[in-house]
Structure formats: structure tokens, C-alpha cells
Design a protein around this nucleic acid. Structure first.
Lengths: 345, 345
DNA sequence: TCGCATCATCATAGCGCTACGATCAGGGAC
DNA sequence: GTCCCTGATCGTAGCGCTATGATGATGCGA
């Protein structure tokens, strides 16, 4: 019952220079028409369209997507969660994905898990707070809380860079076990019998571990007992050098090595060169990634190329289709990989 | 005068599962208190705090930052614009910056210019639409429209990875000309006289061009006329191989080469190996970046290390200080660089 | 006892936009 | 002329939150 009467309140600070209604006033139309002009220009008559365009240009109007997102109950943001952009694979995917989304007016909100599932959960929580148009994350393994959060969210979700178990919503990736198997079969077909898989950070990088397992399993099928060596640090050339050194000591008669990625392979290549160990004659070497330097190495590196940019583009395709309300039939896209036969192995 | 009367409207679709007022109801406090709980927990009494925490956990409440951003006239987003995350330097910076911002509840909105100033302008426009807490972009060179947009925006702005002209607002980076000069002086001090700078994409990558110019200028001071070679494609090892090939043909008697980055240097190293050209005896080689493989090369690569992660951390420091309303005295931070003396040059 | 801080809590008015439904003009079909 | 359809435009009611200032409750010195 406290009808307080005409209390004067201090004017609230204005958030932005030019608002939509100011544009509307300048163009002599209503705010609704200006809004429509941005969302469906074709529904606005040419004269009004022109007047609004002129007003927008003159006033330097920039639409406020925060307000738009709130009103529309969904923002034009795609939340992207990867282990690390310092990893060349994810950098490529992030780049391709962003490039494919921008033409559709979508922007990328980026987060890094550093291979930590708890951090992933925090990032998913933060992502959800933005009412994103979609959430893209890496891999099929998540915390139970993360899963629950994602399942409850009525948002398109894409899990990428892995294939196997059913995705929560949609998936884009390939079978890492098959990559490892391909490397093993390649080396065996070339007459190698003492195989080692050298990986880095496999205690965290589950996909690298899958490649290692696929490698060992395929070797076993051929009656060969392949060794798996892990370096706990980052997957860089130094790890490759260290791993080759260990392999040489721990696996007598080693004649072939597969690396969990091309940087590791390159490190092994350099280490072999330092030891005057002939590649591929004495030691055959297969990498993973076909990173830009693989072809330039001496000798050129045989490697398995996943389509990192294709992953990004396919993710974008699914996301855009879902935002448009189209039904997505292929909810689990296989982007595959190819063996790039060069000289090293 | 159309007092329309009690028109029934259809209920608007609810945007999210649990709202703040539902949490408030469950915790038996007002929505204001819940809001305060999230913004300044210490201003809420312990019993209320506990009740709210319980309600949040039970209902699985996730705050809506879109609404918060609108009401508070600024969002917890930092817009980050780089040429490309496929570039290892920027990947490192993006990674370090994101890691430093997340603990402060800030998220990164990422955009790639691909070295295109028009694209940069579009990205700045899109960034502004999010009322970001800050805008971080790469380099000091921008379109006139971009500059105007940024100057008008009342938002902290950091220009990174370059130093020279005054930044629009704040700057974090180093002098690329000095990097080139350091490379030249190093090679000359080691007795080299026929110098070449090999760069890639320098028609677009202005900072690489600055390194080239600094290199040539320092050589000139020593009475040496250094050549500059540019490869228009991406700065990868293939470019390095091509450039060394060209240098060998176009610069008779060449005895030293500086590369615009370590990938290019690595390509030159491999090309030298292919030609049985001794490094450093016949050809000295200096790179830029100290990327993870530089130390692992054969021979280990002498290179100049910029502090890519430091750039990210310093940017974060400035951004956070400004968001907190602190005065930033050092508006142009020099992150410097160091010569990493190894074997190649 | 009063007066005046201090602290915790609350009610309210937007932030700038979009979705919805209403309105209005113009154009056939009958 | 009437009816209905279509296309363009508009007014309004929120979206979920935060900033602001008001309201009580409590403590403390005088």
C-alpha cells in the first residue's frame, strides 16, 4: 500500500553512444522496423531500408548484441572448448571453425582445458552463462557433472576430435585407434618387426593413448609385441629425442617407431641424425598430423593426416544447420584420416 | 487514448531453467540478496550466504551473464583479435592471456584477421557489439575507421606484439626492428659479410617486415649491404627451403641468413642438409621465436626469443587493472626479447 | 533515553533489444 | 461494395539481471 508518489530517480548511466531507437528517430521509422531491418532486411520496404541504412551510417550505430541476446533468449556466440590452442591440431580447428562461423554472424568464445576435466566443467558452466547458440568441446570424455550440465542445456552440442561412444548430441571426428593401427600395419608391411609407439602426455591426452592402443593391438594381430613409451611432458621434439633414446635402450633391436605426433617424430628424426642412425634404413618412422614441416624434413616424414580444418568446417556445418532449425541426420560425422607416404617409414 | 483493457498475452518462452528469483525464493531471501551474493559475497550475512549456496547447488542455477551484462552495461568478456592462432606466437599469447583472465571471471571472445585490416574492422565492430570489458588487438596499424571506432568506444584497449608509435590506449610488445638489428649484429660479429634476411608473407605481416628492415639497417651501419627476400606464402619450412634456394642463386657468396621465424629457419636448415651445405661453417643461420623445436634441431638453432606468453600475461595485467578502475601508468610495456645463442649461427 | 552510524536486506526501475500480436493500407475476387 | 489476403509497420511487454536508494535492525556514545 505504499504508493510512494513521484520520487525522482537519478538517471542511469547510458551504456552506449547510439541506441536503436535513436536510429529509428533519425530514419523516421519505429524501433521495431529498425530491429527488423537487422534481422530480416527483406521484410523492410526499400525506402525504409535506405533511410535506416543512412541513419545507421551517420550515427555510427553498433547494435547491442547483449541486449539482443537477452531478448531473443540466445546469443550469437558459439562456445569453443579445446585442450590448448598451442597444440597445432586444435589451432587449425579453431581457425577453420571461426572462419566458417563469422560469415553467419556467429562469434567464438574460447576456453582452454589444458586436458583437465575439472577445468572443462568450469568452462562449460561459464559457457552456459552466455546462453550460447552452441557449445563445441573436445573429446567424448567428460565429468559426470559436465554431462549433466550439457544434457540439461537446450543447446546444440558438438563433441569433436574423437569417435567411438555415442556423442551427447553431435560428434565430429575420427577413430584414433584406427590411426594407430594404420601406422602399425604400415610399418609391418614394410618388413619391420620390432615396433615402438612413442607418445607424450598420454596420461592426459586420451586420444594419443587411443592411438597407442590401436598401434599395439594391430601389431598383436600380426603376432608382434609392440612397446609403448610415454613421456609425461609436452609433445614436442625434445620429447621425441628423449623417447627415441629410451626406446633404443629399452627395446633391443628396434627397427620402427610411430610417434604420437609429428613434433615428437621430428625430435626422433633429429636424435637419429645425431646418432648417425639411418632413417628409414635402420629405423623407420611414422608420425601423426602432417604438420607443415613434415614434408620438409630430411628425410620427408611419413605421417598420418587427420583433417583438422575439416573437423572445424564440419562442426560449423552442424552448428549452423541446428541453429537454423534444420534436422541433422548425420549426428556423428567421421572426418577420417589418410596415410601420407613419404620416405621416413 | 486506447486503454486497451485486459488483453491476454501468450506467455513468453522462458530462456533458462532456473532464474535468480527462483533461487531467491528457495533460499527465502530477495533476488537482490542473491545478486549481491554473486557480486560481493562478503556483503551477505553468513546464514543467508549458506542458504543461497544451498539453493544454488540444489537447483543447479547458472547465472545469466547476458542479462547481467545488459544490466551492468558491461560484459565479462575480453575481445581478442589476432592474425591467426595457427601462428605459434599468437597461439602462445592467446593461451597465456586466457589463462590469466579466467581466474578473474573474464572470458575470451576470439577473432582472426588473417592479416586483413578490413576483416579486423569487421571484428572490432562485432566485438563492440558485445560491450566487452576490454578489446585486445594485434599491432599498431589499423584502418582509419577501426581507429575511430576504438577511440570512441569507452573500453580499455590493448594493442600487442608491436612497439613504436603511441598506442590508442595501451600497448604491450617489443621493437621488431631491434630484433632484426640484433640478428644482423650477431652474424656480423661472427665474421659474416654476405647477409640475407629471408621472410615470408612480409607483404602482409608488417612485424616481419620491420624485422627485415631492422636487419638491413644494422648491416648498413657496418657497411654491409644485406639482401631481403620475401616469400608470399605462409611462413613454414617449405618457405624456408625455397628462400634458401633463391638466396643461394641470387646472392653470390652468401654466408649468413636470418629468418623471419623459426619455421622458416628450420626449412632452410633442412635444405642446407639436403645440399650438404655445412651449418654454421658455410652458412650461419639465425631464427626468430625460439619455438619448441629450435633447441632440438641439428645443429641447434640460434634464435631470438620474444616472450609470447609474457605478452599475454602483461596484457591481462593491464586489462585487469583497468577493469578494477586502477590507473595504469605504464601504458606502453616493453616485453623485450633475448638472443638464444646455440650452434647454427 | 535519544541520535546517529553501520550493516543486512529489500523493492523498484531500468539496461536495449526482440517477439508477439495488432493495425493499416492496398489489391484482387466475387 | 464487401471480404479476405498480403505486406509493411508499429506498440508493448518482457528477457534476467544490477544499481540505486530506501527500510529496518542493531550497536554505541552521550
Amino acid at each position: 500500500m505504499d504508493d510512494a508518489g513521484p520520487i525522482r530517480r537519478r538517471a542511469r548511466r547510458k551504456m552506449q553512444a547510439v541506441t536503436m531507437s535513436e536510429v529509428a528517430a533519425a530514419a523516421d521509422v519505429s524501433a521495431s522496423t529498425v530491429s527488423l531491418y537487422f534481422r530480416r532486411p527483406k521484410s523492410v520496404s526499400p525506402p525504409a531500408r535506405e533511410a535506416i541504412a543512412r541513419a545507421v551510417a551517420e550515427l555510427g550505430y553498433v547494435p547491442n548484441l547483449v541486449a539482443g541476446g537477452l531478448a531473443a533468449a540466445s546469443s550469437r556466440v558459439v562456445s569453443l572448448i579445446v585442450p590448448s590452442v598451442r597444440n597445432a591440431f586444435f589451432a587449425e580447428t579453431v581457425s577453420a571453425l571461426e572462419a566458417a562461423l563469422v560469415p553467419h554472424g556467429l562469434q567464438v568464445l574460447l576456453g582452454h582445458t589444458e586436458y583437465d576435466l575439472a577445468r572443462e566443467e568450469a568452462l562449460v558452466r561459464a559457457a552456459l552463462a552466455w546462453a550460447p547458440a552452441a557449445i563445441v568441446l573436445t573429446g567424448l570424455e567428460h565429468n559426470q557433472d559436465t554431462r549433466t550440465l550439457l544434457e540439461k542445456a537446450r543447446v546444440p552440442i558438438v563433441e569433436m576430435w574423437e569417435r567411438g561412444a555415442a556423442p551427447i548430441d553431435m560428434g565430429v571426428g575420427f577413430d584414433h585407434g584406427a590411426v594407430g593401427a594404420l601406422a602399425a600395419r604400415r610399418l609391418i608391411a614394410r618388413g619391420r618387426r620390432r615396433l615402438v609407439f612413442c607418445g607424450a602426455r598420454m596420461q592426459e591426452d586420451r586420444r594419443a593413448a587411443q592411438r597407442a592402443e590401436g598401434f599395439a593391438a594391430a601389431a598383436r594381430e600380426e603376432g608382434i609385441d609392440a612397446a609403448i613409451l610415454n613421456h609425461p611432458g609436452p609433445a614436442d621434439p625434445q620429447a621425441g629425442a628423449l623417447l627415441l633414446d629410451r626406446a633404443l635402450r629399452e627395446v633391443p633391436g628396434i627397427d620402427a617407431m610411430a610417434a604420437s605426433n609429428d613434433f615428437v617424430a621430428m625430435g626422433a628424426l633429429f636424435e637419429a641424425q645425431r646418432r648417425a642412425l639411418a632413417v628409414p634404413d635402420t629405423l623407420a618412422l611414422v608420425g601423426f598430423g602432417d604438420l607443415p614441416f613434415a614434408a620438409a624434413c630430411v628425410p620427408p616424414l611419413t605421417t598420418i593426416r587427420p583433417a583438422g580444418d575439416l573437423v572445424g568446417r564440419e562442426v560449423a556445418r552442424l552448428v549452423i544447420a541446428r541453429i537454423r532449425g534444420e534436422t541433422v541426420l548425420d549426428r556423428a560425422v567421421d572426418t577420417g584420416f589418410v596415410l601420407v607416404e613419404r620416405v621416413s617409414g
